[in-house]
Design a protein around this nucleic acid. Structure first.
Lengths: 121, 121
DNA sequence: CCTCCTGCTTCGATTTTCGAACCACTATGA
DNA sequence: TCATAGTGGTTCGAAAATCGAAGCAGGAGG
């Protein structure tokens, strides 16, 4: 399963420069990537469970993403499912202001379900 | 040009919940979206210039993304090109730890061009 | 043996993205 | 006036990414 993940230092889609942030933007800009990291940060999960949590994302893409993210050293498979690595945890942490921002977004665009933070289902 | 952008409060790909962060993940997980925001945060730009800065991204996708982002109140067209709105600026700010993270990523995975922070070109 | 769970792989259908060509409009300048 | 170049796009066929149902192999329980 060739899954050439973007890596810092290597030219990626849309950037010859190899600047790390461009590689990150490429990697994260693939469907489900951020969602997978997000879900795993809540709790480790096996393949099927991850698929369930992500509203039945397609198994083929999940395989690809897991390969990419593993190759990028952001997660690692263990006996009880996939875990974020230290680097993966750091990434999610770096991304965490997004949650607060999105609530402000919801509020200011007026499309949100009231506050939006509680809608845990 | 129908460009139904994800909005907080509305079910999006991969999430029925309508939770704002899921809408954000959907929006940002489309190709070039984060890159466009990133570029505009450096400096406003017109259509063609934006296209040049993003290594010749396809004009049709650029049109679509600009519509989506405009619809999401993240940017607005002005006489001298597209600008981030306040909300758009906030989003880029929320995303900014990513730059620092990516350099650490480059360093720790050893694939980076040395430090990686200077490759401004 | 049967059933249910797991982690995947396969493959045809659908959606997204690409990218070159093209259109209309506004200079600039010879 | 005629060209040349720049702008902001649109169009459309081709290529790539994603989808999703089906299937496979393996393990556990009954």
């Amino acid at each position: 399963m060739e899954a050439r993940a973007p890596r810092p230092g290597v030219p990626v889609r849309g950037s010859e420069s190899g600047r790390p942030v461009m590689a990150a933007l490429d990697l994260l800009g693939r469907r489900w990537t951020m969602r997978i990291l997000w879900e795993l940060s809540q709790a480790p999960a096996g393949f099927r469970e991850l698929q369930r949590r992500c509203e039945r994302m397609s198994s083929s893409v999940l395989t690809t993403r897991l390969d990419e993210l593993t190759g990028a050293c952001l997660l690692t498979p263990q006996a009880d499912g996939y875990h974020l690595t230290r680097l993966g945890q750091d990434l999610v942490e770096a991304l965490s202001p997004l949650d607060a921002w999105s609530r402000r977004w919801a509020k200011e665009t007026g499309t949100g379900t009231t506050g939006g933070s509680e809608g845990v289902k």
